[in-house]
Amino acid sequence: MRRIAEKLMLTSKNEEERDERRYYGIGLILSVVLTVASFASVMTGLLPRPWIFPALVVLALSQIVVHLRIFLHIDLSRQKREDLQVLLFTLLLLGIMAFGTLWILRDLAHRMM
């Protein structure tokens, strides 16, 4: 009886490992695809010039989300500590400070012309 129970535990552990490795594998494949797409958009010249920068922003943001979700396990589930809230609050602060910096210094540069 005990042996069967141990064996059952072992198989579920093996399955769990396989699933988790697959999950990380998907993360790697997505990261590689998004990275290749970023480099290709610049190096191949397939995209019209004005589209390149927005494409780079979208690809980078998607890859960041993939990393956060798969490698760092930050998701929308509720049982965790305030990891996501801390991240979002940091992004809010950064939004204010980084956008403010860009705005003020651009304006200043413009006035110095």
Binding site: S38, V42, I52, L56, V57, L59, Q63, H67, F71
Partner: peptide
Amino acid sequence: GLYWHFLDIVWVGIFSMVFLAGVA
């Protein structure tokens, strides 16, 4: 591990915004 993945995320920003956007 958190630190290491975090640095990779920062690098995504660097290669996209500094290098690729720089020569696009």
